[in-house]
């Protein structure tokens, strides 16, 4: 069974249709890259999959392991294994990162009927994950993303992904704001999570990221639709010729 199936999805925001019948099928173990010009609807798709309020689905469906994802609350989706690394992670002053991670992980575990992690158990896990991503411990003591640089915010997203061990990871421009070294560390973190049962959807503007996270499929999105799909060579083609050729197709 497919892990994630988006079928003919139509989405409106404030009376305006943004996605006009988008389809995407993601199987376990696969890595998909989505590329496309600014405003083509990539983040909108990721938000709708994660369950962000404010989007009206006017057609189509999204299935997660055959279940209707659109019927689930965002926290149910998270507990089932849907994870979105945000393009713009928010700052949450007054909520310590460590506390947030612990509460979130235990909330997901509780929803799945798993045992709660005690503070020492959690700390061990969190520090190990942070170390592998070069995240200093004192960053974890600060408010969630508060005063983090752009790159630190992105690394914090990857850290969460490593901790929560989701089934489907949607990475919305995880490479934006990362310097070359940070990009390599983050990509290594993502690659370490690649597995038979897990799938990744990597949204990016740059071929460079795909040198590190090598996709099985590349999709071009334009004006709210997938207009072309192919293998990893499609990304190189785009890098060379740009999106203009697809604007008409959309």
């Amino acid at each position: 069974m497919s892990l994630l199936e988006v079928k003919d999805l139509k989405v409106r925001v404030e009376e305006r249709e943004i996605l006009h019948g988008l389809s995407l099928t993601v199987n376990p173990g696969e890595v998909h890259a989505i590329m496309g010009p600014n405003g083509s609807g990539k983040s909108t798709l990721s938000h709708v999959i994660a369950g962000k309020p404010g989007y009206e689905v006017t057609g189509g469906e999204i299935l997660f392991r055959g279940e209707d994802l659109l019927e689930m609350s965002p926290d149910e989706r998270a507990a089932k294994g849907v994870f979105l690394a945000f393009q713009y992670p928010v700052e949450i002053p007054g909520v310590a990162t460590m506390n947030f991670l612990h509460v979130a992980l235990n909330a997901q575990r509780k929803a799945r009927g798993e045992s709660q992690l005690t503070t020492p158990e959690f700390l061990k896990k969190a520090y190990a994950a942070a170390a592998s991503l070069n995240i200093p411990r004192d960053m974890l003591k600060r408010g969630v993303n508060v005063g983090f640089s752009g790159g630190e915010k992105k690394r914090n997203e990857i850290l969460q992904m490593a901790l929560f061990e989701p089934a489907v990871c949607i990475l919305d421009e995880m490479d934006s704001g990362l310097d070359i070294d940070a990009l390599r560390v983050a990509a290594d973190g993502v690659n370490a999570l690649r597995s038979q049962g897990r799938a990744m959807v990597v949204i990016t503007h740059y071929q460079r990221l795909l040198n590190y996270i090598v996709p099985d499929f590349v999709h071009v999105m334009s004006k709210g639709r997938v207009v072309k799909s192919g293998g990893k060579e499609l990304a190189l083609e785009l890098e060379a010729s740009g999106y203009a050729q697809f604007e008409d197709a959309a």
């Binding site: 994660a50 369950g51 962000k52 309020p53 609350s73 965002p74 926290d75 989706r77 998270a78 507990a79 979105l84 945000f86 992670p89 928010v90 949450i92 947030f100 509460v103 979130a104 992980l105 909330a107 997901q108 929803a111 969460q160 929560f164």
Partner: peptide, 13 residues
């Protein structure tokens, strides 16, 4: 939404 996307229920968030 950020908190809920990480698994917290509405009340918990």
């Amino acid at each position: 939404f950020y908190l809920r996307a990480r698994g917290l229920s509405e009340k918990e968030a």
